[in-house]
């Protein structure tokens, strides 16, 4: 067999292997979504969204779960966005590029990869016990904010790095201070990338369960939270709770709740992708 022919065989083998791998992932996902949809879709109605949890599957709803998720989403955003963006701006624009900076940089990248349950333990120690927040929304939001902070910091830095030097020079050349240059030019120019990172980070927070279990979020909460100090549950916890029940009715409920959760994350990711595309088109000055 000639070398050429051999190469061609390797080439086409790899191509078909690649196609198989791609479709394997897609097919599994499709089967999963199809299953969930056939099971859950008929369960989604106004009552399901507005009912409190119940021992009878047909009466149980996800009101406490989705309001909890909304609370967590809002509080986590309020805590993590200013901190993360400010840290990113400091590290990228003000921090000296020395040894310490590169150590911090590596650490932040590593933090983004720490298993979420570790953040749960951290949150339990700091927010639940030391700061005495208990198993409240606030403790949960702070814990999740810590979890997604590295993502926001890294996204902010990347977005700032992509802003062309000529823009900063134009601003400095006009007599702007560093802060004016950041506030009026660099940050707005980077805002698309930063926003994309924030939304992706928040959509990760929405799906997290493990750290919330650790800090003591409850699966069964019979009331809608009205202050950040209230106990709470979130959609993934509710799903986790329902799938572990024996009755088939609860499995259907879980499927319906999964559809809602998927919808939320799909919409958030959709917005992120939309913003990224829009932003990429704009960055051609």
């Amino acid at each position: 067999m000639t070398k050429l022919k051999q190469n061609r065989i390797i080439d086409s083998t790899f191509k078909y292997f690649g196609i198989f791998c791609t479709f394997f992932g897609l097919i599994v996902l499709a089967i999963f979504i199809f299953n969930i949809l056939t099971e859950g879709v008929q369960r989604i109605n106004w009552d399901f969204l507005s009912n409190l949890p119940s021992r009878r599957p047909a009466k149980a709803g996800i009101l406490t779960a989705w309001t909890g998720t909304a609370w967590i989403l809002g509080l986590t955003a309020i805590i993590s966005i200013p901190l993360g963006v400010a840290a990113g701006v400091y590290l990228e624009e003000y921090g000296k590029k020395n040894r310490l900076a590169s150590i911090i940089e590596i650490n932040i990248a590593n933090l983004a990869g720490v298993p979420s349950i570790i953040y749960g333990l951290l949150g339990l120690e700091i927010f639940v016990r030391t700061l005495n927040f208990g198993g409240s929304l606030l403790a949960g939001a702070f814990t999740l904010a810590l979890l997604i902070l590295p993502i926001i910091i890294v996204a902010t830095r990347e977005a700032l790095k992509a802003v062309p030097k000529s823009l900063r020079e134009a601003s400095f050349g006009m007599g702007a201070t560093k802060w004016q240059t950041i506030w009026y030019q660099t940050l707005p120019a980077a805002s698309g990338g930063i926003l994309t990172g924030i939304i992706l980070a928040l959509s990760r927070a929405v799906g997290e369960t493990a750290p919330l279990i650790v800090i003591g979020a409850l699966a069964y909460v019979p009331f809608v939270a009205s202050t950040p100090m209230d106990e709470f549950t979130v959609l993934p916890m509710q799903i986790f709770n329902w799938v572990s029940r024996p009755q088939h009715g609860f499995v259907i409920n879980a499927a319906a709740a999964i559809i809602i959760l998927l919808l939320i994350t799909f919409i958030m990711n959709g917005i992120a992708i939309y913003l990224r595309n829009k932003w990429q088109k704009k960055v051609n000055w």
Binding site: P164, S166, L167, E169, A170, S171, G173, M174, G175, Q185, P188, A189, K282, W285
Partner: peptide, 14 residues
């Protein structure tokens, strides 16, 4: 502000 600058590549703000 006293000594203005114009650069090689036009760099208006977006």
């Amino acid at each position: 502000q006293k000594v203005g600058m114009v650069f090689q590549k036009p760099n208006p703000f977006p």
